[in-house]
Design a protein around this nucleic acid. Structure first.
Lengths: 185, 185
DNA sequence: TAGTCGATAGACAGAGTTGTCTACTTTATG
DNA sequence: CATAAAGTAGACAACTCTGTCTATCGACTA
């Protein structure tokens, strides 16, 4: 028994609008119209707009790391995998038309909500852990930094590159971040 | 002939609310109530809410770099000035209670507006230029990177540190970014 | 075949939104 | 002192917002 098509259409439409336009400017009315479903159907599946937001964050989080895993899978070597994370973000920037990181956006708009904030933190923490695990497994590297500092460096460069790239609608910053990563790795 | 106290109070209150709560959730009604001014006074000085937003960005931009200049002035040596920029951001994070960069927040909420976006870009560009100029003037450094790449590294580390720090309500990330900056500088 | 469940259309309440307008009062300046 | 500028209070229009509720319809199941 799969989730109803209606529920999927609600979440899909809401996700698109929350990301493209922003959470607060997206109204329930717009969601039900574009998803072409009844008002009561939405409130049947999601008791409030906040529940819909949390569902959006959860599904985006899962999808994000599933995509990353798929992207890194064919890459040979841990150092190459680390650098490929930058490529992954660059690819996403293009695909998402430079509208920035889903979680950064929502954190800027609804960071007072603890349930939102904890999800944003969990997302970033998991990415940092992925990087750290790869760093630990990377035996042949020329860095003077220890594992912790190297992982943090790569993580901060990545986040900085994506943040700046989102403002300039360009992959330049993230690609620069990768170049720098190559020299310190 | 100084600007009227009313106008200053409008911009001051709006700035505080736009930053603390967000732009879209802050209503005109709340601004006029908390600023304790008349509705018509607001629309006399600022024809629309958007004008108020742009005035907020402009004044924040000017204030930001005036504060930075004052902070860097007593620091001796260009390498030390570069590292002090990290301290400046850390100090601001604490003072602003970790609510993040003014411009990143507004970019996440109103990035479709070109007038907003151009101001955000100008702000980040100017910071990157400040860093670049200091890098060029820093003669004694042990970096393997050229001027351009070194400036970009520092800039991206700084932005990454502030972005992540805002999520964790901690100065740890920005301090880490400074540590890394010290090793590559 | 009867009944339940999911979906739909749409009205509705109550509050909030931006922006305009009128009428009155205070302040400043020639 | 008189006139013009700046500020105040508040009504108002025209929406939009979230969330609830009723009434109806179609499909699947016991």
């Amino acid at each position: 028994m799969k989730e109803s098509a209606v529920k999927e259409r609600i979440l899909g439409t809401a996700s698109r609008l929350f990301y493209d336009q922003g959470y607060h400017v997206t109204g329930i009315n717009q969601i039900i119209e574009e998803a072409d479903i009844a008002r009561a159907s939405l409130y049947n599946h999601y008791p409030s707009k906040t529940d819909l937001l949390l569902a959006y964050l959860d599904s985006t989080h899962e999808c994000w790391f599933a995509d990353l895993d798929a992207f890194l899978k064919p890459i040979e070597g841990n150092r190459e995998k680390l650098l490929a994370i930058f490529d992954f973000r660059v690819q996403r920037q293009v695909k998402l038309k430079f509208k920035g990181c889903h979680f950064n956006k929502i954190a800027a708009e609804a960071s007072d909500d603890q349930e939102v904030l904890s999800r944003v933190r969990a997302h970033k923490q998991r990415l940092r852990n992925v990087i750290y695990d790869l760093v630990v497994q990377t035996t042949q590297r020329r860095s003077i930094l220890d594992n912790e500092n190297l992982a943090d460096s790569l993580f901060l460069l990545l986040e900085g590159g994506v943040a700046i790239g989102g403002m300039y609608r360009s992959t330049e910053a993230a690609e620069k971040a990768k170049q720098i990563a190559e020299t310190i790795l």
